[in-house]
């Protein structure tokens, strides 16, 4: 059923080495993505999901550094690429869009030119052809009056329009993978749904795989084929969206789902997960979620001492929790 992996990440670790200590933002991530698949990467603020997204494109900047692991994209090892190769990969192989669409656009360059630029420099189009293509791309992302809007500057756009333009730029070269880092967080709720629908539609049309980084589990339910839940720099649960929502195996995922409001279900208060994410600058020998886990008291000391491996719930669904180990 699943095609050969487009992206395969093994044991990836990105650390930030500062004078105050080493922050393990991403610490041993395994991840697979098939062609055209939509993966929701969920986690709360500070769990390392943005750093992971940047790591995939080798965009982590000093003091951050990839310290271990491998990233295989389309059969090529991304971690071993030289600067020229990785530059070619970005934009052509992988695209990325960010949380703040308006600050992600260059304020002094007309948006038509910003869309055309990668077409000229990466795809070798002529200036005129790229300008025509830019207008077509603006139309494809649902910008009304595309021809006039191509001459606009970013400050003349609304947030939603700016994100549409970012999507047009990121998909201009028809990359095989698009990484969207909280693409709708800064937008109005009404616009969010439109942008998400647009993302899904464009990615499907181009056969582009999508990694959707978000803290909004509702967005994931709407859009993703598969879900990866991230906690303290690790992926604690990974599986098909239906399985995760129907039968979350990791206590953290269970907590996340309970803390999300569900339409039609009235409750006095939303359940919150007690406590805070752990300090990532200290090595955590065991399960990072143990201090906040409801099951910790009944599970014993193994949770504190040993990091649980990814244990299979079903063949496609795995979680890092000792409760899944046969007792």
């Amino acid at each position: 059923m699943r095609e050969a992996a487009l992206l395969s990440v093994r044991g990836l670790a990105a650390h930030f080495v500062t004078r105050a200590g080493t922050l393990r933002a991403v610490d041993g991530v395994d991840l697979d993505l098939a062609s055209g698949e939509v993966l929701g990467l969920v986690g709360e603020s500070g769990c390392g999901k943005t750093v992971l997204a940047l790591s995939l494109m080798r965009l982590v900047e000093p003091p951050g550094r990839l310290v271990a692991g491998s990233i295989t994209f389309d059969g090529n090892d991304v971690t071993a690429m030289d600067t020229r190769t990785i530059t070619r990969l970005r934009g052509r192989g992988m695209g990325m869009i960010f949380q703040q669409p308006r600050t992600s656009l260059d304020p002094v360059i007309r948006i038509g030119n910003q869309i055309a630029e990668p077409l000229i420099s990466h795809a070798g189009m002529s200036r005129a052809a790229a300008a025509r293509e830019a207008i077509a791309l603006l139309e494809a992302v649902g910008i009304p009056g595309a021809e006039a809007k191509a001459r606009a500057y970013p400050h003349e756009l609304s947030g939603g329009q700016a994100q549409r333009v970012m999507i047009a730029i990121a998909l201009a070269l028809k990359p095989r993978l698009l990484i969207a880092d909280e693409p709708t967080t800064s937008l109005d709720v009404t616009v969010q749904a439109q942008i998400l629908a647009l993302l899904r539609e464009r990615c499907r049309a181009l056969g582009t795989a999508l990694i959707l980084v978000t803290h909004d589990i509702g967005v994931v339910a709407q859009l993703a084929d598969r879900v990866a839940v991230m906690y303290a720099g690790r992926i604690v649960e990974q599986g098909p969206v239906g399985d995760i929502f129907a039968a979350p195996a990791h206590p953290y995922t269970q907590g996340l789902l309970q803390s999300a409001p569900v339409l039609g279900r009235r409750r006095e208060r939303l359940a919150a997960i007690e406590g805070n994410i752990p300090d990532l600058s200290r090595p955590i020998p065991g399960c990072a979620f143990a201090p906040r886990c409801d099951h910790r008291p009944t599970m014993g000391e193994r949770c504190d001492r040993e990091m649980p491996p990814a244990l299979a719930v079903t063949p496609a669904h795995a979680a890092r929790c000792w409760r899944l180990a046969t007792p």
Partner: peptide, 11 residues
């Protein structure tokens, strides 16, 4: 951020 974005787009 737009410099980061440009880098992500292969500049």
């Amino acid at each position: 951020e737009y410099v980061e974005a440009a880098r992500a787009l292969g500049a």
